[in-house]
Design a protein around this nucleic acid. Sequence first.
DNA 1: TCTACAGTTCTAAATCTATAGAACTGATTT
DNA 2: AAATCAGTTCTATAGATTTAGAACTGTAGA
Lengths: 93, 93
Amino acid sequence: MGENQEDMGQAVKLYKALGEPTRLKIALLLAKESNLCFTAIGEKLESVAGSTLSHHLKQLTDSGLIDSRKNGSYIHYNVNREIAEKFAPYLLA
Amino acid sequence: MGENQEDMGQAVKLYKALGEPTRLKIALLLAKESNLCFTAIGEKLESVAGSTLSHHLKQLTDSGLIDSRKNGSYIHYNVNREIAEKFAPYLLA
DNA sequence: TCTACAGTTCTAAATCTATAGAACTGATTT
DNA sequence: AAATCAGTTCTATAGATTTAGAACTGTAGA
């Protein structure tokens, strides 16, 4: 087969991350607007607690779909476009 | 935005369907070999009860990712390639 | 230094999901 | 008709997931 086990593991994580409405929204937000930080993302979602948002962002970054860069006390998030194209180009459409 | 609510709903269902190891395996199996029927799929997975397999196939078909065609007492399954290309081309790689 | 802000971790509760056994429907074969 | 095979539905259970409050860490600013 063309696919190996590591890929399968990453794919499951990534699709599981996207298979939840709030996280899919976050991914779509970040695909549209780069470099949003934690608070900015939270403001674009209606009523999500900080602890919940943190949990969702962790799953998305753990899957490899989004990258984070720390700048001072802010963390900026971006979609990893190479990964998105391979696994979920719908995000970039 | 380019994405509408219906698309979001379908996308969540589809990614949720793929975000589980057994279902991802099924999708990869079907991407590689077309027209497998229920029992043939079950045989390619190690130890999955029929009721469980039925449940998984329902989720995959409900998401639109796989199609089913009844032929006598058999049901044959196939990946919907148009949907796969848009949402998860990784399956076809 | 003290306060405020950005984000994380801990803990707990409610909900959801995966799983399979048993009983079922409907088509096929003998 | 009776038995068999393909697949579904019902029911129950163990485990995972989502959610948020509270307490926390680290950075920035007054």
